[in-house]
Design a protein around this nucleic acid. Structure first.
Lengths: 158, 158
DNA sequence: GATAATTACCCACTATTACCCATAAACTAG
DNA sequence: CTAGTTTATGGGTAATAGTGGGTAATTATC
């Protein structure tokens, strides 16, 4: 049987799950399959800039580490940046059923209690509390025509 | 049986412990496992540049020693720097339960009494007093959008 | 050199986590 | 439609992590 499951190695789509009594959350099978072998069944979860949790593949995280290691250990603002970036990062290997146990402090920070929405963001994944996501959609996420034009220019220029 | 437990050999995440009656602090199991064999169950603790304690793997410390040896023994400021970096460095082997006894002067300098926050910083570890860390977060560490962008560019360019 | 203080080395208990097996629902292939 | 497979979810059990404390060995003090 040939793996016809080629195609997308990126994370796309939206999924809804709930956290079980032991604090485990399922990672969509689609996303697990999109993980490169070098990521060793491991995702790295951390705080997002919004009220959510961000998930990277282990590969992607290693890349980020490389960058952070270039920072000066003398400059206070560099240390602060590095600290902020690594402090909440936790590598998680998913179990044989495809679940991970997300640290409580991350769940709390994202306001997650039971249900979650998992969103594919191409090279990373976001985990949201459903009602908080809804609130963001109604306010923070609103983009006007100007915003969109600015973004369009940005992607074309670089 | 080969340890296939590869994954991340770096220090990440945040942990909270307290110092027991005998002055011992736990080192997160995750960090102990991340130690290379050549570090012989030993961490080197020393003063941080912030009001905290910094912990290196024995390997990493040896590297730092190499660098310090390159300094001139004639130039006063080189001697001062070398002295400052070495004076408080103490190698500590953790016991069978994974704890180390940190020298009192380091604890005092970091304002640590009972509770500690241990933060993984990729290639080193920081130990903080919880309330001091909090204070730093609110003041010294505050990075505005400009700072962040500057640092981000820094890591990408080099 | 005797005694006190400190440190190193064990052993024990509890909560948490890792690892395994089970089941129901959803999906795929023929 | 049906049988086999995969996915999502639940739960049992063994191993590990974190914590406390006892005692012998070492070091310091007088």
């Amino acid at each position: 049987m040939l793996k016809r499951e080629m195609g997308t190695k990126t994370f796309t789509g939206e999924f809804r799950y709930s956290i079980d009594a032991k604090g485990r959350v399922n990672i969509p099978a689609k996303f697990r399959k999109a993980l490169p072998d070098t990521s060793e069944d491991t995702f790295v979860v951390t705080r997002g800039l919004d009220e959510n949790i961000v998930v990277y593949s282990l590969d992607k995280w290693r890349q980020k580490e490389e960058e952070l290691l270039k920072l000066s250990s003398i400059k206070p603002e560099h240390r602060a940046f590095k600290r902020q970036a690594t402090r909440f990062a936790t590598p998680l290997k998913f179990d044989s059923q495809g679940r991970v146990a997300i640290p409580i402090n991350l769940l709390q920070n994202a306001g997650i209690e039971k249900d979650v929405v998992i969103i594919g963001m191409i090279d990373e994944i976001e985990i949201w509390d459903p009602s908080i996501l809804e609130r963001y959609e109604e306010t923070e996420f609103r983009l006007d025509a100007e915003d969109i034009e600015a973004i369009d220019n940005y992607t074309r220029s670089s």
